[in-house]
Amino acid sequence: MNFTSSLRNKKAKTNGYGWSSWIGYAAMLWSALYGTLHLYWLLGGAGYPFKNEGMGLFSAMVTYLPAKVGGIVFVTLCLIAIGLGLVMQKRQLKDFSRWVAIAYICGFSVALLLFIPDTTLIAAMAYAFLFKFDFNWQMVNQIFCIIGALFWMMSAVVYQRKARHACEYCGRTNDGEAPALIRWGRWLTIIAAVAPLPYAFIRFSWALDIPLGVDPQFLKDFSSANPMARMTEWVFGSICIVGGVLTLGLIQKWGEVFPGWFPFIGGKRVPIMFAVIPASIIAIAVTAAGFVFTFGIIVEALHLVSMDNILLSQGWGAMGPMIFWVPWGVALGLAAIAYYYRRRGRCSSCGRG
């Protein structure tokens, strides 16, 4: 072992790999807490959060499970995750077993992100711009599940890095090869910036009283029933446009250094997490809502389930643009990761840059 490698190893042990040293334990603690909650609900406790309250196929996927079945499923999933987490902390598994463990953890995380959140999260974020706030226990539960999904995803990343003898904190190896995601960052960012435009275009047309893609009577009735309807359409459309422009900052110079005309901070470097955290939050909310919308649209289009949903009956303009939400959210999330990889500096644990 040469002097540089020895220095890196010593520094890594001193720093404890940062978040990578505790994320696995945080994920197991989350599973223990959430599994206990579901055991409480399974035994008849109050507050079961998964309810299909008139939202039809546009509610969370998990709401179609009976409460007792849902409780058994979640208690089992959490117990398995804790068991795998303990094994992953203590020893290295053989190749097949390692991939089985990683596949389970990733599948568990994706299920927490896609099957539990519904459309209320993205709606609450949008209506906050109209100073309307509606926060309830169901939304707290969804946020808690998203946190758990992130914990387990990051645990799987750390375990995979450990298996390939990379730095657990940054993922770099001695070959110095840049992550492939960086090469796709520009295209992912462009997709994420363009994907919300159809939704914005529809909203702006309705704000101008143009019944694009819907029955004119539907638009008239909607405007009559809601005095703030036109303002809502302008705000929702504008959020998409502004969000698309800000997304482009992930590949533009002004996304790395604040423009000079910014008061107080002009010319200073943009903190990496200042861009990554908001983009990641929006990506998760949009992807989850888009998954619910897309599932509902496909099921209705194939006549697999008969449902009475006023939006689906009004034409393609009411629900069609939501088809783009899943690629929008996925592209935005990956673009944020690519931005992080591109801008991160030398690792504080292994010293690689």
Score class of each variant (00 low, 15 high):
residue 197 L to S: 07
residue 105 I to P: 00
residue 176 G to P: 12
residue 182 I to L: 12
residue 146 I to T: 03
residue 71 G to M: 08
residue 138 Q to F: 02
residue 93 L to R: 13
residue 125 M to F: 14
residue 165 H to Q: 15
residue 166 A to S: 15
residue 182 I to T: 15
residue 157 V to M: 06
residue 188 L to Y: 08
residue 177 E to I: 09
residue 141 N to V: 01
residue 164 R to E: 15
residue 86 L to R: 10
residue 188 L to K: 08
residue 138 Q to W: 02
residue 67 A to P: 09
residue 69 V to T: 15
residue 107 G to K: 01
residue 170 C to D: 12
residue 151 F to T: 02
residue 170 C to R: 09
residue 171 G to A: 11
residue 81 A to V: 12
residue 87 V to K: 14
residue 196 P to M: 10
residue 112 L to Q: 13
residue 184 W to D: 10
residue 129 F to D: 07
residue 161 R to N: 11
residue 136 N to L: 02
residue 76 T to A: 15
residue 79 L to Y: 05
residue 188 L to I: 13
residue 94 K to I: 02
residue 82 I to Y: 04
residue 92 Q to N: 14
residue 184 W to R: 14
residue 80 I to A: 13
residue 73 V to A: 14
residue 121 L to Q: 03
residue 190 I to S: 12
residue 80 I to M: 08
residue 89 Q to A: 07
residue 175 D to Q: 11
residue 156 A to E: 06
residue 68 K to P: 04
residue 113 L to G: 03
residue 98 R to D: 01
residue 173 T to A: 06
residue 178 A to S: 10
residue 157 V to A: 08
residue 168 E to L: 13
residue 95 D to Y: 02
residue 89 Q to S: 05
residue 139 M to P: 00
residue 104 Y to E: 02
residue 102 I to H: 00
residue 152 W to S: 12
residue 111 A to R: 01
residue 106 C to H: 00
residue 128 A to S: 14
residue 117 P to V: 04
residue 161 R to F: 01
residue 109 S to Y: 04
residue 195 A to M: 15
